[in-house]
Design a protein around this nucleic acid. Sequence first.
DNA 1: CGACGTCAAATCGTATACAATCTTTGCGCT
DNA 2: AGCGCAAAGATTGTATACGATTTGACGTCG
Lengths: 271, 271
Amino acid sequence: MATGRIGEGRGADVGGIADGIATLDAATMAAAGRDAAGTFGGRAGAGLRSPRVRAIYSALLDAILANRLPPATRLPEDDLGSIYGASRTIVRSALEALAHDGVLTIEPNRGAFVASPSVADARDVFDARLLVEVQLAERAARCITAADIAALRQHLADEHAALDAGLQQRAILLSGLFHVHIAEATGQRALAGFVRELVSRSSLIVALYWRRRDAICGSHAHEELVDALARGEPDLAGARMRAHLLDILDGLDLTERPAKSIDLGDVLRDA
Amino acid sequence: MATGRIGEGRGADVGGIADGIATLDAATMAAAGRDAAGTFGGRAGAGLRSPRVRAIYSALLDAILANRLPPATRLPEDDLGSIYGASRTIVRSALEALAHDGVLTIEPNRGAFVASPSVADARDVFDARLLVEVQLAERAARCITAADIAALRQHLADEHAALDAGLQQRAILLSGLFHVHIAEATGQRALAGFVRELVSRSSLIVALYWRRRDAICGSHAHEELVDALARGEPDLAGARMRAHLLDILDGLDLTERPAKSIDLGDVLRDA
DNA sequence: CGACGTCAAATCGTATACAATCTTTGCGCT
DNA sequence: AGCGCAAAGATTGTATACGATTTGACGTCG
């Protein structure tokens, strides 16, 4: 495939993947500049060298978290390279970083695929979230600043706005980010990074196993959580976080249906 | 010793790095094959494609955790490539993975350096460890199997053997692995991976801020911990884990000497 | 004598070429 | 027709070449 041909001319040959990525391509690349709360990959991937790797990393992460790239989607290096106008070197670096975050799986000599967490993975992730986030909520209730509270309320407003505007993808992304923001408000950087990773993987889990049609991560729960934080009640905040996470878990259908890795071939083929 | 101070001239430090790595190079590369409890990088770096990247990743990680490569050591890609007989492509991949784990820092256009955690980083890491590992110890006391107990006791024996044999580097490495093994015994894979990362960073922290001359991570504490686990007493196990971690923290000198992140520049320059 | 600008060496950033591996296709054989 | 094998195609794995950036040094000027 033509190496130097990129930028605009991505449309025809790459079809499916380009749809998933390029739809928000421009917006994402733009968001890569402002480090604001709009994009999930904002502060993530902190160990990435060049801005170009960062950009692809963020774009792919956003696409995956917003479920534009469903689990088990194959991500060939050449295609991504021509879509983003970068060489495979850059793309590989971004893919490896994403694999390290657990949102991609790299099979040697076969390529990268959007991760499709097993039922066991799902339980594992939410176990970890319960253990970590409940305690972080308690701690946040003790140490959170007024500015952080304000920022969280602003975030809630953004969530609502996205939902009201029908931007479901953005709503999903923001609802995940909410948990990351709480973790960051405690000032615990290591734990916040871990929560970010867990939330990322949760997006894939929800994409695979969600059964309810309720509002995802009902903003009601988020608001109650912020209230508990604002009132400085650690126990209440922890309890609400626990209830919220258990509620999400309850909304999943974790019966042993898709066994393990349903193999991605069929998903690719029909496309 | 040669590994002690590097940074004289640009050309001279190649010898230093080679010393730090190649000393145990053969042993490490051999250990890369058997996935046993000998090497830290055994199950880590799970997202790495090729065996060669894995090998370099493990070798570097072991060298760093055993403190053969002290914090702020520069790791030029070319040198590592010639040491391991690999191209920069491979080396870069390994370096990026290590940076993601937090044991390396990559400065754009400048290269990779062994991380030198700030005092704030140190507190951050041990805060996280307290939050996570105490609960994991409680959980382990509930669910651990007899086989895991036996494996832990064997591990304790290895630690003692290393100490008695004067293999201090190996003792340090094993004493970190002990915590990882407990986390893995709970079956919580995500949390175990996080603990592995925190333990790695702790090795650097201890290398930088240790002040006591006691046995590092006194095996006494480890044995009491295993006893509590074997007796199936969650509260006791949790309490002992907490006390153990606080004891380590207490052995650190976290006065604000190196302020925040003066970064490694000065450490390298003034030598 | 110190400060600053220019230059050269070293190192990283990226692209690309080539090799290895896997996948698919088509053919021949039973 | 079914099965197995072999060759072609596609994709990843690795090495290397070249450009960009930084660094340290030297020499000149104020």
